[in-house]
Design a protein around this nucleic acid. Structure first.
Length: 613
DNA sequence: GCCGTTTTCGGCCCGACTGTTTTCAGTCG
Protein backbone atom coordinates (compact mmCIF):
# COMPACT_ATOMS: atom_id res chain seq x y z
CA UNK A 1 0.00 0.00 0.00
CA UNK A 2 2.44 2.65 -1.18
CA UNK A 3 1.64 6.30 -1.15
CA UNK A 4 2.01 7.06 -4.85
CA UNK A 5 1.29 10.15 -6.90
CA UNK A 6 -2.46 10.69 -6.99
CA UNK A 7 -4.31 10.57 -10.30
CA UNK A 8 -5.54 14.13 -9.87
CA UNK A 9 -1.99 15.38 -9.38
CA UNK A 10 -0.88 13.54 -12.50
CA UNK A 11 -3.72 15.04 -14.52
CA UNK A 12 -2.86 18.50 -13.24
CA UNK A 13 0.76 18.16 -14.33
CA UNK A 14 -0.28 16.93 -17.78
CA UNK A 15 -2.65 19.86 -18.16
CA UNK A 16 0.04 22.27 -17.05
CA UNK A 17 2.44 20.79 -19.56
CA UNK A 18 -0.21 21.19 -22.27
CA UNK A 19 -0.64 24.86 -21.29
CA UNK A 20 3.08 25.53 -21.53
CA UNK A 21 3.43 23.69 -24.83
CA UNK A 22 0.59 25.74 -26.20
CA UNK A 23 2.29 28.96 -25.10
CA UNK A 24 5.44 27.66 -26.70
CA UNK A 25 3.53 27.28 -29.94
CA UNK A 26 3.77 23.50 -30.13
CA UNK A 27 1.75 21.41 -32.57
CA UNK A 28 -1.85 21.79 -31.38
CA UNK A 29 -2.50 18.08 -31.80
CA UNK A 30 0.38 17.27 -29.58
CA UNK A 31 -1.11 19.61 -27.00
CA UNK A 32 -4.44 17.86 -27.44
CA UNK A 33 -2.76 14.52 -26.84
CA UNK A 34 -1.57 15.67 -23.41
CA UNK A 35 -5.00 17.03 -22.57
CA UNK A 36 -6.67 13.80 -23.65
CA UNK A 37 -4.30 11.84 -21.48
CA UNK A 38 -5.09 14.15 -18.55
CA UNK A 39 -8.82 13.42 -19.02
CA UNK A 40 -8.19 9.70 -19.11
CA UNK A 41 -6.19 9.84 -15.90
CA UNK A 42 -8.90 11.88 -14.17
CA UNK A 43 -11.53 9.36 -15.20
CA UNK A 44 -9.53 6.31 -14.26
CA UNK A 45 -11.10 4.43 -11.39
CA UNK A 46 -7.77 2.85 -10.57
CA UNK A 47 -4.74 4.71 -9.26
CA UNK A 48 -2.06 4.86 -11.98
CA UNK A 49 0.58 4.34 -9.34
CA UNK A 50 -1.11 1.06 -8.38
CA UNK A 51 -1.38 0.02 -12.03
CA UNK A 52 2.32 0.61 -12.55
CA UNK A 53 3.12 -1.30 -9.40
CA UNK A 54 1.05 -4.23 -10.66
CA UNK A 55 2.99 -4.10 -13.91
CA UNK A 56 0.04 -3.04 -16.05
CA UNK A 57 1.02 -1.58 -19.42
CA UNK A 58 -0.23 2.02 -19.36
CA UNK A 59 -0.65 2.10 -23.14
CA UNK A 60 -3.85 0.15 -22.47
CA UNK A 61 -5.29 3.50 -21.35
CA UNK A 62 -7.17 5.54 -23.92
CA UNK A 63 -4.93 8.24 -25.40
CA UNK A 64 -1.75 6.96 -23.78
CA UNK A 65 0.86 5.73 -26.24
CA UNK A 66 4.39 4.54 -25.86
CA UNK A 67 5.85 7.96 -25.16
CA UNK A 68 3.31 9.03 -22.58
CA UNK A 69 3.38 5.66 -20.85
CA UNK A 70 7.12 6.09 -20.46
CA UNK A 71 6.73 9.65 -19.15
CA UNK A 72 4.03 8.62 -16.70
CA UNK A 73 6.07 5.73 -15.36
CA UNK A 74 8.93 8.16 -14.80
CA UNK A 75 6.60 10.52 -12.99
CA UNK A 76 5.31 7.78 -10.72
CA UNK A 77 8.82 6.52 -10.01
CA UNK A 78 10.50 9.86 -9.38
CA UNK A 79 7.70 12.28 -8.58
CA UNK A 80 8.64 14.62 -11.42
CA UNK A 81 7.37 14.85 -14.95
CA UNK A 82 10.62 15.18 -16.88
CA UNK A 83 9.07 16.76 -19.99
CA UNK A 84 7.45 19.44 -17.86
CA UNK A 85 10.82 20.25 -16.28
CA UNK A 86 12.34 20.59 -19.74
CA UNK A 87 9.64 22.86 -21.08
CA UNK A 88 9.59 25.05 -17.99
CA UNK A 89 13.26 25.80 -18.52
CA UNK A 90 12.15 27.67 -21.64
CA UNK A 91 8.73 28.97 -20.57
CA UNK A 92 8.09 30.08 -16.97
CA UNK A 93 5.55 27.78 -15.33
CA UNK A 94 3.64 30.72 -13.87
CA UNK A 95 2.65 31.77 -17.42
CA UNK A 96 0.16 28.91 -17.44
CA UNK A 97 -1.89 30.68 -14.78
CA UNK A 98 -2.39 33.67 -17.09
CA UNK A 99 -4.44 31.51 -19.45
CA UNK A 100 -6.92 30.95 -16.65
CA UNK A 101 -7.97 34.57 -17.09
CA UNK A 102 -11.16 35.13 -19.04
CA UNK A 103 -10.18 36.28 -22.52
CA UNK A 104 -6.53 35.31 -22.23
CA UNK A 105 -5.32 32.24 -24.06
CA UNK A 106 -1.88 30.93 -24.92
CA UNK A 107 -1.22 33.44 -27.71
CA UNK A 108 -1.95 36.44 -25.57
CA UNK A 109 -0.04 35.04 -22.62
CA UNK A 110 2.94 34.56 -24.92
CA UNK A 111 2.63 38.07 -26.25
CA UNK A 112 2.43 39.60 -22.78
CA UNK A 113 5.56 37.74 -21.84
CA UNK A 114 7.45 38.63 -25.03
CA UNK A 115 6.49 42.27 -25.09
CA UNK A 116 6.29 43.17 -21.41
CA UNK A 117 8.18 40.43 -19.65
CA UNK A 118 5.07 39.60 -17.64
CA UNK A 119 5.14 36.11 -16.08
CA UNK A 120 2.40 36.07 -13.44
CA UNK A 121 -0.84 37.67 -12.30
CA UNK A 122 0.78 40.33 -10.12
CA UNK A 123 3.09 41.53 -12.87
CA UNK A 124 0.24 41.54 -15.36
CA UNK A 125 -1.94 43.56 -13.01
CA UNK A 126 0.85 46.07 -12.52
CA UNK A 127 1.39 46.41 -16.27
CA UNK A 128 -2.32 46.81 -16.96
CA UNK A 129 -2.74 49.43 -14.27
CA UNK A 130 0.19 51.37 -15.72
CA UNK A 131 -1.54 51.28 -19.11
CA UNK A 132 1.28 49.36 -20.73
CA UNK A 133 -1.00 46.81 -22.42
CA UNK A 134 -2.54 49.29 -24.81
CA UNK A 135 0.63 49.66 -26.79
CA UNK A 136 0.84 46.00 -27.78
CA UNK A 137 -0.37 44.76 -31.15
CA UNK A 138 -3.81 43.20 -30.78
CA UNK A 139 -4.49 44.78 -27.40
CA UNK A 140 -6.44 47.96 -26.81
CA UNK A 141 -8.05 49.94 -24.04
CA UNK A 142 -10.95 47.52 -23.76
CA UNK A 143 -8.86 44.40 -23.48
CA UNK A 144 -6.73 46.10 -20.84
CA UNK A 145 -9.81 46.84 -18.74
CA UNK A 146 -11.16 43.37 -19.34
CA UNK A 147 -7.95 41.79 -18.13
CA UNK A 148 -8.00 43.85 -14.94
CA UNK A 149 -11.56 42.69 -14.27
CA UNK A 150 -10.60 39.11 -15.04
CA UNK A 151 -7.75 39.27 -12.53
CA UNK A 152 -10.15 40.48 -9.83
CA UNK A 153 -12.64 37.76 -10.73
CA UNK A 154 -10.07 35.02 -10.70
CA UNK A 155 -8.88 36.04 -7.27
CA UNK A 156 -12.39 36.33 -5.83
CA UNK A 157 -14.22 33.37 -7.22
CA UNK A 158 -12.98 29.95 -6.28
CA UNK A 159 -13.92 28.94 -9.79
CA UNK A 160 -16.71 26.44 -9.47
CA UNK A 161 -20.07 26.48 -7.77
CA UNK A 162 -21.79 23.56 -6.11
CA UNK A 163 -24.63 22.22 -8.19
CA UNK A 164 -27.12 23.07 -5.45
CA UNK A 165 -25.89 26.68 -5.47
CA UNK A 166 -26.25 26.90 -9.22
CA UNK A 167 -29.78 25.60 -9.00
CA UNK A 168 -30.63 28.36 -6.54
CA UNK A 169 -28.65 31.15 -8.23
CA UNK A 170 -30.15 30.61 -11.68
CA UNK A 171 -33.80 30.00 -10.78
CA UNK A 172 -34.65 33.71 -10.90
CA UNK A 173 -32.90 34.20 -14.22
CA UNK A 174 -34.68 31.17 -15.68
CA UNK A 175 -38.04 32.66 -14.69
CA UNK A 176 -37.01 36.01 -16.15
CA UNK A 177 -35.98 34.55 -19.51
CA UNK A 178 -39.17 32.48 -19.78
CA UNK A 179 -41.09 35.77 -19.85
CA UNK A 180 -39.32 36.96 -23.00
CA UNK A 181 -41.51 36.95 -26.13
CA UNK A 182 -40.77 34.08 -28.48
CA UNK A 183 -39.41 31.67 -25.87
CA UNK A 184 -40.89 28.24 -26.49
CA UNK A 185 -38.65 26.03 -24.37
CA UNK A 186 -35.83 26.64 -21.95
CA UNK A 187 -33.19 24.28 -20.60
CA UNK A 188 -30.09 24.61 -18.46
CA UNK A 189 -27.46 22.52 -20.23
CA UNK A 190 -23.70 22.07 -19.93
CA UNK A 191 -22.22 20.44 -16.85
CA UNK A 192 -25.37 21.38 -14.95
CA UNK A 193 -27.42 19.02 -17.11
CA UNK A 194 -24.77 16.35 -16.77
CA UNK A 195 -25.22 16.85 -13.01
CA UNK A 196 -21.59 17.36 -12.20
CA UNK A 197 -20.98 18.04 -8.51
CA UNK A 198 -19.67 21.51 -9.31
CA UNK A 199 -20.41 23.79 -12.22
CA UNK A 200 -18.09 26.45 -13.67
CA UNK A 201 -20.65 28.38 -15.66
CA UNK A 202 -24.18 27.80 -16.81
CA UNK A 203 -25.46 27.46 -20.36
CA UNK A 204 -29.04 28.40 -20.95
CA UNK A 205 -30.71 27.14 -24.10
CA UNK A 206 -33.86 28.76 -25.46
CA UNK A 207 -35.96 27.38 -28.27
CA UNK A 208 -37.28 30.20 -30.38
CA UNK A 209 -40.92 30.12 -31.45
CA UNK A 210 -41.41 30.17 -35.24
CA UNK A 211 -41.01 33.73 -36.42
CA UNK A 212 -39.47 34.76 -33.09
CA UNK A 213 -36.61 37.20 -32.90
CA UNK A 214 -33.41 35.93 -31.30
CA UNK A 215 -31.95 39.34 -30.64
CA UNK A 216 -34.91 40.44 -28.56
CA UNK A 217 -34.62 37.30 -26.42
CA UNK A 218 -30.94 38.03 -25.86
CA UNK A 219 -31.76 41.65 -25.02
CA UNK A 220 -34.38 40.57 -22.49
CA UNK A 221 -31.86 38.13 -20.98
CA UNK A 222 -29.29 40.94 -20.77
CA UNK A 223 -31.77 43.13 -18.89
CA UNK A 224 -31.93 40.73 -15.93
CA UNK A 225 -31.75 42.88 -12.78
CA UNK A 226 -29.54 40.37 -10.96
CA UNK A 227 -26.79 40.73 -13.56
CA UNK A 228 -23.53 42.26 -12.43
CA UNK A 229 -22.54 42.95 -16.03
CA UNK A 230 -23.25 41.84 -19.56
CA UNK A 231 -20.25 40.33 -21.35
CA UNK A 232 -21.68 39.65 -24.78
CA UNK A 233 -24.91 40.15 -26.64
CA UNK A 234 -25.52 39.08 -30.23
CA UNK A 235 -28.28 37.67 -32.40
CA UNK A 236 -28.05 34.12 -31.10
CA UNK A 237 -25.87 34.39 -28.04
CA UNK A 238 -25.61 36.43 -24.89
CA UNK A 239 -23.44 36.20 -21.84
CA UNK A 240 -23.67 37.78 -18.40
CA UNK A 241 -22.17 37.51 -14.96
CA UNK A 242 -24.48 37.33 -11.95
CA UNK A 243 -23.63 39.24 -8.78
CA UNK A 244 -22.51 35.96 -7.25
CA UNK A 245 -19.80 35.79 -9.92
CA UNK A 246 -21.53 32.96 -11.76
CA UNK A 247 -21.35 33.34 -15.53
CA UNK A 248 -24.41 32.44 -17.58
CA UNK A 249 -24.40 32.04 -21.35
CA UNK A 250 -27.59 32.09 -23.37
CA UNK A 251 -28.07 30.52 -26.80
CA UNK A 252 -31.15 30.99 -28.92
CA UNK A 253 -32.03 27.99 -31.04
CA UNK A 254 -34.50 27.52 -33.91
CA UNK A 255 -36.87 24.51 -33.45
CA UNK A 256 -35.30 22.38 -36.18
CA UNK A 257 -31.97 22.62 -34.37
CA UNK A 258 -33.23 22.08 -30.83
CA UNK A 259 -31.98 18.51 -30.39
CA UNK A 260 -28.62 19.22 -31.99
CA UNK A 261 -28.07 22.25 -29.78
CA UNK A 262 -29.25 20.40 -26.68
CA UNK A 263 -26.70 17.73 -27.40
CA UNK A 264 -23.94 20.08 -28.43
CA UNK A 265 -24.19 22.39 -25.42
CA UNK A 266 -24.73 19.61 -22.90
CA UNK A 267 -21.30 18.25 -23.75
CA UNK A 268 -19.01 17.14 -22.45
CA UNK A 269 -16.56 18.43 -24.96
CA UNK A 270 -14.83 15.07 -25.14
CA UNK A 271 -18.12 13.26 -25.63
CA UNK A 272 -19.06 15.64 -28.45
CA UNK A 273 -15.74 15.11 -30.19
CA UNK A 274 -16.39 11.38 -30.23
CA UNK A 275 -19.87 11.83 -31.63
CA UNK A 276 -18.62 14.11 -34.37
CA UNK A 277 -15.92 11.62 -35.23
CA UNK A 278 -18.55 8.91 -35.64
CA UNK A 279 -20.53 11.29 -37.82
CA UNK A 280 -17.55 12.06 -39.97
CA UNK A 281 -17.04 8.39 -40.76
CA UNK A 282 -20.61 8.22 -41.98
CA UNK A 283 -20.12 11.25 -44.22
CA UNK A 284 -22.10 13.44 -41.84
CA UNK A 285 -21.42 16.71 -40.15
CA UNK A 286 -22.79 17.27 -36.64
CA UNK A 287 -22.84 20.78 -35.27
CA UNK A 288 -25.12 22.78 -33.00
CA UNK A 289 -27.50 23.45 -35.89
CA UNK A 290 -28.20 19.87 -36.87
CA UNK A 291 -26.91 16.79 -38.62
CA UNK A 292 -26.01 17.29 -42.28
CA UNK A 293 -24.88 15.09 -45.13
CA UNK A 294 -21.54 16.39 -46.32
CA UNK A 295 -21.70 17.29 -49.99
CA UNK A 296 -19.11 18.91 -52.26
CA UNK A 297 -21.04 22.15 -52.04
CA UNK A 298 -21.29 22.13 -48.27
CA UNK A 299 -17.62 21.31 -47.92
CA UNK A 300 -16.77 24.33 -50.03
CA UNK A 301 -18.93 26.47 -47.82
CA UNK A 302 -17.11 25.10 -44.76
CA UNK A 303 -13.71 25.76 -46.30
CA UNK A 304 -14.67 29.29 -47.08
CA UNK A 305 -15.45 29.87 -43.44
CA UNK A 306 -12.14 28.40 -42.41
CA UNK A 307 -10.30 30.58 -44.88
CA UNK A 308 -12.06 33.51 -43.38
CA UNK A 309 -13.52 34.63 -46.69
CA UNK A 310 -16.63 36.75 -46.30
CA UNK A 311 -18.80 34.84 -43.84
CA UNK A 312 -22.55 35.05 -43.91
CA UNK A 313 -23.50 37.32 -41.00
CA UNK A 314 -26.02 34.90 -39.51
CA UNK A 315 -24.68 31.39 -39.31
CA UNK A 316 -28.14 30.08 -38.40
CA UNK A 317 -29.20 30.53 -41.97
CA UNK A 318 -26.07 29.03 -43.41
CA UNK A 319 -26.33 26.03 -45.64
CA UNK A 320 -24.38 23.08 -44.28
CA UNK A 321 -25.81 20.66 -46.84
CA UNK A 322 -28.74 18.29 -46.69
CA UNK A 323 -30.25 18.23 -43.20
CA UNK A 324 -30.78 14.70 -41.94
CA UNK A 325 -31.61 15.42 -38.31
CA UNK A 326 -31.26 17.69 -35.33
CA UNK A 327 -34.77 18.45 -34.09
CA UNK A 328 -34.42 16.00 -31.21
CA UNK A 329 -31.45 14.57 -29.35
CA UNK A 330 -32.64 11.09 -30.23
CA UNK A 331 -32.17 11.69 -33.93
CA UNK A 332 -28.73 13.21 -33.43
CA UNK A 333 -27.64 10.04 -31.65
CA UNK A 334 -29.48 7.81 -34.11
CA UNK A 335 -27.74 9.45 -37.05
CA UNK A 336 -24.40 8.16 -35.77
CA UNK A 337 -25.76 4.77 -34.75
CA UNK A 338 -26.20 5.42 -31.04
CA UNK A 339 -29.17 5.11 -28.71
CA UNK A 340 -30.00 8.18 -26.61
CA UNK A 341 -27.37 8.49 -23.91
CA UNK A 342 -28.35 10.04 -20.56
CA UNK A 343 -26.50 13.34 -19.98
CA UNK A 344 -24.88 12.07 -16.75
CA UNK A 345 -22.89 9.54 -18.79
CA UNK A 346 -21.62 11.94 -21.42
CA UNK A 347 -18.03 12.26 -20.26
CA UNK A 348 -16.36 10.03 -22.83
CA UNK A 349 -15.81 7.43 -20.16
CA UNK A 350 -16.95 4.49 -22.24
CA UNK A 351 -20.53 5.52 -22.94
CA UNK A 352 -19.92 5.72 -26.70
CA UNK A 353 -18.61 2.16 -26.84
CA UNK A 354 -21.38 0.94 -24.51
CA UNK A 355 -23.96 2.66 -26.71
CA UNK A 356 -22.61 1.15 -29.91
CA UNK A 357 -22.60 -2.30 -28.30
CA UNK A 358 -26.05 -1.92 -26.78
CA UNK A 359 -24.88 -2.26 -23.21
CA UNK A 360 -25.66 1.11 -21.69
CA UNK A 361 -26.77 0.76 -18.08
CA UNK A 362 -30.37 1.32 -17.10
CA UNK A 363 -29.60 4.08 -14.63
CA UNK A 364 -31.15 4.31 -11.19
CA UNK A 365 -33.90 6.93 -10.85
CA UNK A 366 -35.15 8.96 -7.92
CA UNK A 367 -38.43 6.98 -8.05
CA UNK A 368 -36.50 3.78 -7.38
CA UNK A 369 -35.45 4.92 -3.91
CA UNK A 370 -37.47 3.19 -1.16
CA UNK A 371 -35.83 4.56 1.94
CA UNK A 372 -33.31 6.92 3.45
CA UNK A 373 -30.67 5.36 5.69
CA UNK A 374 -28.87 8.31 7.20
CA UNK A 375 -30.55 11.23 8.96
CA UNK A 376 -30.36 13.07 12.25
CA UNK A 377 -32.96 14.29 14.72
CA UNK A 378 -33.14 16.50 17.79
CA UNK A 379 -31.64 13.55 19.67
CA UNK A 380 -28.26 14.81 18.39
CA UNK A 381 -27.56 17.66 15.98
CA UNK A 382 -30.75 17.53 13.89
CA UNK A 383 -33.40 20.25 13.92
CA UNK A 384 -36.54 18.12 13.70
CA UNK A 385 -38.03 15.48 15.97
CA UNK A 386 -38.16 11.78 15.16
CA UNK A 387 -41.80 12.03 14.31
CA UNK A 388 -41.34 15.03 12.03
CA UNK A 389 -38.59 13.21 10.16
CA UNK A 390 -40.75 10.09 9.92
CA UNK A 391 -43.71 12.01 8.52
CA UNK A 392 -41.45 13.77 6.03
CA UNK A 393 -40.08 10.42 4.86
CA UNK A 394 -43.58 9.04 4.46
CA UNK A 395 -44.50 12.15 2.43
CA UNK A 396 -41.66 11.23 0.10
CA UNK A 397 -43.17 7.82 -0.45
CA UNK A 398 -40.53 5.81 1.40
CA UNK A 399 -41.13 2.35 2.88
CA UNK A 400 -38.42 2.67 5.50
CA UNK A 401 -35.92 4.99 7.10
CA UNK A 402 -33.11 4.82 9.60
CA UNK A 403 -32.53 7.36 12.32
CA UNK A 404 -28.78 7.67 12.67
CA UNK A 405 -27.96 10.15 15.39
CA UNK A 406 -24.34 10.54 16.38
CA UNK A 407 -22.43 8.49 18.94
CA UNK A 408 -21.03 10.18 22.09
CA UNK A 409 -17.46 10.95 20.98
CA UNK A 410 -18.85 13.81 18.94
CA UNK A 411 -19.28 15.82 22.10
CA UNK A 412 -20.19 19.08 20.41
CA UNK A 413 -23.36 17.56 18.99
CA UNK A 414 -24.27 15.74 22.20
CA UNK A 415 -24.11 12.30 20.68
CA UNK A 416 -26.11 9.39 22.06
CA UNK A 417 -24.74 7.46 25.00
CA UNK A 418 -25.88 3.87 25.44
CA UNK A 419 -28.42 5.01 27.97
CA UNK A 420 -29.70 7.82 25.72
CA UNK A 421 -29.89 5.41 22.80
CA UNK A 422 -32.20 3.10 24.77
CA UNK A 423 -34.46 6.02 25.54
CA UNK A 424 -34.48 6.94 21.87
CA UNK A 425 -35.59 3.41 20.97
CA UNK A 426 -38.64 3.85 23.19
CA UNK A 427 -39.55 6.95 21.23
CA UNK A 428 -38.89 5.12 17.97
CA UNK A 429 -41.36 2.47 19.12
CA UNK A 430 -43.96 5.14 19.82
CA UNK A 431 -43.46 6.79 16.43
CA UNK A 432 -43.73 3.38 14.75
CA UNK A 433 -47.18 3.11 16.31
CA UNK A 434 -48.26 6.59 15.27
CA UNK A 435 -46.83 6.75 11.74
CA UNK A 436 -48.23 3.98 9.58
CA UNK A 437 -47.01 2.81 6.21
CA UNK A 438 -43.36 3.44 7.00
CA UNK A 439 -40.86 1.47 9.05
CA UNK A 440 -38.29 3.13 11.29
CA UNK A 441 -35.03 1.32 11.85
CA UNK A 442 -32.99 1.69 14.98
CA UNK A 443 -29.58 2.83 13.96
CA UNK A 444 -26.73 5.17 14.81
CA UNK A 445 -23.92 6.94 13.02
CA UNK A 446 -21.15 5.45 15.09
CA UNK A 447 -17.81 7.21 15.11
CA UNK A 448 -14.75 5.35 13.97
CA UNK A 449 -12.23 6.15 16.68
CA UNK A 450 -8.64 6.89 15.92
CA UNK A 451 -7.56 3.25 16.32
CA UNK A 452 -10.40 1.85 14.22
CA UNK A 453 -12.54 0.72 17.14
CA UNK A 454 -16.14 1.87 17.34
CA UNK A 455 -17.56 4.51 19.62
CA UNK A 456 -20.30 2.26 21.07
CA UNK A 457 -20.51 -1.00 23.01
CA UNK A 458 -21.25 -4.16 21.06
CA UNK A 459 -24.07 -4.88 23.46
CA UNK A 460 -25.89 -1.76 22.23
CA UNK A 461 -24.93 -2.24 18.58
CA UNK A 462 -26.36 -5.76 18.67
CA UNK A 463 -29.79 -4.37 19.48
CA UNK A 464 -29.81 -2.07 16.50
CA UNK A 465 -31.33 -2.92 13.13
CA UNK A 466 -28.36 -1.56 11.27
CA UNK A 467 -25.07 0.11 12.06
CA UNK A 468 -23.56 2.98 10.11
CA UNK A 469 -19.97 3.98 10.80
CA UNK A 470 -18.00 7.03 9.79
CA UNK A 471 -14.91 9.12 10.46
CA UNK A 472 -15.35 12.55 12.06
CA UNK A 473 -12.03 13.07 13.83
CA UNK A 474 -8.29 12.75 13.30
CA UNK A 475 -8.70 13.36 9.62
CA UNK A 476 -5.05 14.22 9.05
CA UNK A 477 -3.68 10.71 9.55
CA UNK A 478 -1.40 9.44 6.82
CA UNK A 479 -2.76 7.15 4.16
CA UNK A 480 -1.57 3.91 5.70
CA UNK A 481 -2.85 4.68 9.16
CA UNK A 482 -6.17 6.03 7.93
CA UNK A 483 -6.76 3.07 5.64
CA UNK A 484 -5.96 0.56 8.37
CA UNK A 485 -8.24 2.46 10.72
CA UNK A 486 -11.19 2.29 8.34
CA UNK A 487 -10.56 -1.33 7.36
CA UNK A 488 -10.42 -2.35 10.99
CA UNK A 489 -13.71 -0.61 11.70
CA UNK A 490 -15.39 -2.27 8.72
CA UNK A 491 -14.26 -5.65 9.95
CA UNK A 492 -16.39 -5.27 13.04
CA UNK A 493 -19.07 -7.94 12.50
CA UNK A 494 -22.01 -5.70 13.36
CA UNK A 495 -21.21 -2.99 10.81
CA UNK A 496 -23.50 -2.60 7.80
CA UNK A 497 -22.66 0.67 6.07
CA UNK A 498 -19.57 2.86 5.77
CA UNK A 499 -20.74 6.49 5.74
CA UNK A 500 -19.22 9.34 3.68
CA UNK A 501 -16.08 7.28 3.09
CA UNK A 502 -13.58 9.99 2.14
CA UNK A 503 -14.77 12.83 4.39
CA UNK A 504 -14.50 15.59 1.85
CA UNK A 505 -16.56 18.79 1.97
CA UNK A 506 -16.76 20.18 -1.54
CA UNK A 507 -14.85 23.45 -1.86
CA UNK A 508 -13.86 23.38 1.80
CA UNK A 509 -12.09 20.24 2.84
CA UNK A 510 -10.17 17.74 0.79
CA UNK A 511 -10.77 14.03 1.20
CA UNK A 512 -8.63 12.58 3.90
CA UNK A 513 -5.86 10.26 2.79
CA UNK A 514 -7.46 6.89 2.14
CA UNK A 515 -6.83 3.94 -0.13
CA UNK A 516 -10.34 3.83 -1.51
CA UNK A 517 -9.54 0.84 -3.69
CA UNK A 518 -8.53 -1.21 -0.67
CA UNK A 519 -11.66 -0.10 1.19
CA UNK A 520 -13.93 -1.07 -1.69
CA UNK A 521 -12.23 -4.46 -2.10
CA UNK A 522 -12.71 -5.20 1.58
CA UNK A 523 -16.30 -3.93 1.47
CA UNK A 524 -17.05 -6.50 -1.19
CA UNK A 525 -15.48 -9.32 0.81
CA UNK A 526 -17.31 -8.34 4.01
CA UNK A 527 -20.64 -7.47 2.36
CA UNK A 528 -20.44 -4.02 3.86
CA UNK A 529 -22.28 -1.38 1.84
CA UNK A 530 -20.69 2.00 1.14
CA UNK A 531 -22.56 5.25 1.29
CA UNK A 532 -22.97 7.78 -1.43
CA UNK A 533 -23.77 10.75 0.75
CA UNK A 534 -26.33 12.80 -1.19
CA UNK A 535 -25.67 16.11 0.50
CA UNK A 536 -24.53 18.50 -2.25
CA UNK A 537 -21.77 19.58 0.13
CA UNK A 538 -20.35 16.09 0.25
CA UNK A 539 -21.40 13.80 -2.62
CA UNK A 540 -19.06 11.28 -1.10
CA UNK A 541 -18.20 8.84 -2.73
CA UNK A 542 -17.53 10.72 -5.95
CA UNK A 543 -18.59 9.52 -9.40
CA UNK A 544 -15.35 7.71 -10.22
CA UNK A 545 -15.32 5.80 -6.94
CA UNK A 546 -19.00 5.00 -7.25
CA UNK A 547 -18.33 3.47 -10.61
CA UNK A 548 -15.49 1.45 -9.19
CA UNK A 549 -17.81 0.19 -6.45
CA UNK A 550 -20.17 -1.04 -9.13
CA UNK A 551 -17.37 -2.73 -11.06
CA UNK A 552 -16.41 -4.59 -7.89
CA UNK A 553 -20.00 -5.48 -7.05
CA UNK A 554 -20.14 -3.42 -3.85
CA UNK A 555 -23.62 -2.32 -2.78
CA UNK A 556 -24.05 1.45 -2.59
CA UNK A 557 -26.47 3.21 -0.25
CA UNK A 558 -27.66 6.67 -1.26
CA UNK A 559 -28.47 8.64 1.90
CA UNK A 560 -29.18 12.29 2.48
CA UNK A 561 -27.59 12.71 5.94
CA UNK A 562 -30.48 15.13 6.49
CA UNK A 563 -30.31 17.33 9.59
CA UNK A 564 -33.80 18.75 8.99
CA UNK A 565 -36.83 17.58 7.02
CA UNK A 566 -35.94 19.73 4.02
CA UNK A 567 -32.57 18.01 3.82
CA UNK A 568 -34.36 14.83 2.75
CA UNK A 569 -34.88 16.51 -0.62
CA UNK A 570 -31.16 16.26 -1.33
CA UNK A 571 -31.78 12.67 -2.41
CA UNK A 572 -31.89 13.72 -6.08
CA UNK A 573 -28.32 15.04 -5.90
CA UNK A 574 -27.18 11.64 -4.70
CA UNK A 575 -29.14 9.81 -7.36
CA UNK A 576 -27.59 12.07 -10.00
CA UNK A 577 -24.12 11.27 -8.72
CA UNK A 578 -25.00 7.57 -8.72
CA UNK A 579 -26.07 7.89 -12.35
CA UNK A 580 -22.75 9.55 -13.14
CA UNK A 581 -21.19 6.45 -11.62
CA UNK A 582 -23.25 4.22 -13.96
CA UNK A 583 -25.32 2.70 -11.14
CA UNK A 584 -28.46 0.74 -11.89
CA UNK A 585 -31.22 0.27 -9.33
CA UNK A 586 -29.90 -3.16 -8.40
CA UNK A 587 -26.54 -1.63 -7.44
CA UNK A 588 -28.25 0.57 -4.86
CA UNK A 589 -29.23 -1.11 -1.63
CA UNK A 590 -31.99 1.32 -0.70
CA UNK A 591 -33.93 0.66 -3.89
CA UNK A 592 -34.88 -2.69 -2.36
CA UNK A 593 -38.25 -3.27 -0.82
CA UNK A 594 -38.31 -3.49 2.95
CA UNK A 595 -38.36 -7.28 2.97
CA UNK A 596 -35.52 -7.57 0.46
CA UNK A 597 -33.52 -5.03 2.40
CA UNK A 598 -33.95 -7.04 5.56
CA UNK A 599 -32.82 -10.17 3.75
CA UNK A 600 -29.66 -8.28 2.83
CA UNK A 601 -29.12 -7.33 6.46
CA UNK A 602 -29.20 -11.04 7.39
CA UNK A 603 -26.96 -12.09 4.51
CA UNK A 604 -24.35 -9.72 5.81
CA UNK A 605 -24.43 -11.50 9.17
CA UNK A 606 -24.11 -14.92 7.54
CA UNK A 607 -21.24 -13.84 5.32
CA UNK A 608 -19.39 -12.40 8.26
CA UNK A 609 -19.72 -15.65 10.23
CA UNK A 610 -18.46 -17.65 7.25
CA UNK A 611 -15.53 -15.31 6.75
CA UNK A 612 -14.66 -15.93 10.38
CA UNK A 613 -14.27 -12.25 11.08
C1' DG B 1 1.60 12.70 -29.28
C1' DC B 2 -1.99 9.24 -30.59
C1' DC B 3 -4.09 6.09 -33.64
C1' DG B 4 -6.02 2.65 -37.39
C1' DT B 5 -13.77 -0.26 -41.46
C1' DT B 6 -8.85 6.17 -44.54
C1' DT B 7 -3.83 1.11 -40.31
C1' DT B 8 2.55 2.79 -39.79
C1' DC B 9 1.39 8.05 -42.45
C1' DG B 10 -1.54 11.65 -42.30
C1' DG B 11 -4.95 12.79 -40.32
C1' DC B 12 -6.73 14.72 -35.70
C1' DC B 13 -14.38 18.63 -34.31
C1' DC B 14 -16.70 22.92 -35.20
C1' DG B 15 -18.89 27.49 -35.00
C1' DA B 16 -19.95 32.27 -32.57
C1' DC B 17 -18.45 36.48 -30.67
C1' DT B 18 -15.09 40.18 -29.44
C1' DG B 19 -11.91 43.52 -30.30
C1' DT B 20 -9.15 45.87 -33.05
C1' DT B 21 -7.65 43.51 -37.53
C1' DT B 22 -9.61 47.37 -42.57
C1' DT B 23 -9.69 41.50 -43.62
C1' DC B 24 -9.00 38.38 -39.08
C1' DA B 25 -6.84 36.20 -35.04
C1' DG B 26 -7.79 34.78 -30.61
C1' DT B 27 -10.69 32.81 -27.30
C1' DC B 28 -14.36 30.14 -25.74
C1' DG B 29 -17.31 26.31 -25.26
Amino acid sequence: MTRGVENLEIAKLLDELADLLEIQGANPFRVRAYRNAAETVKASSRSLADLVEEGTDLTALQGVGKDLAHQLEGLIRTGTLERLEEVSREVPRSLATLTRLEGVGPKKARKLWDELGVTDLDELEEAAEAGRLEGIDGFGKKSQEKILRAITDLRQVTGRFKISEVERLTSGLVDHVREAPGVERLERVGSFRRRRETVGDVDLLVQLAPGGDGRSVVDHFASFPGAERVEARGGTKGSLVLRSGLQVDLRVIPPESWGAALHYFSGSKDHNVRVRQLAQRKGLRVNEWGVFRVTELAEDAGDEGADGVADAPNAGTRDFGERVGGATEEDVFASVGLPWIPPELRENRGEIEAGLEGRLPELVRLEDIRGDLQMHSTWSDGENSLEEMALACRDRGYEYMAITDHSPSLAMVQGLTAEKARRQWREIEEVRQRVEGLHLYRSMEVDILRDGTLDMDDEVLREMDLVLISVHSFMDLDRTEMTERVLRAMEHPLVDILGHPTGRIIGKRKSFELDVEAVLQRARELHVAVELNASPNRLDLNDVHVRRARELGVQVVISTDAHRTRGLDDMHFGVAQARRGWLEARDVLNTRSRSEFEIWLKRRETATREAGA
